[in-house]
């Protein structure tokens, strides 16, 4: 895989920081006792998470194929 190291390193750094923010928010919410959200917001969030995970899986598979 031929990468522009500056660009890819920057993108990976952004991904790591965003994941940390998500992890931190979820941990805080769990500590507070999980306030119930509207169902439509939860579904949209799940769909977005699934889409991002799918995109990551595709990227990893492409990188493995070289």
């Amino acid at each position: 895989m031929e990468l522009d190291l500056d660009e890819s390193s920057l993108a990976i750094g952004r991904i790591e920081r965003a994941l940390s923010r998500i992890e931190k928010s979820l941990a805080e919410r769990a500590e507070r006792g999980a306030s119930v959200q509207p169902t439509s917001d939860q579904s949209a969030l799940k769909a977005e998470v699934n889409a991002v995970i799918g995109e990551l899986d595709r990227l990893i598979a492409e990188a493995n194929r070289g």
Binding site: M1, L3, D4, E7, S8, A11, I12, R14, I15, A18, V52, E55, L56, R58, L59, E62, A63
Partner: peptide, 10 residues
């Protein structure tokens, strides 16, 4: 393509 995909995912 991978760089662009990484940026989009970010």
């Amino acid at each position: 393509t991978h760089d662009r995909a990484l940026l989009q995912i970010a």
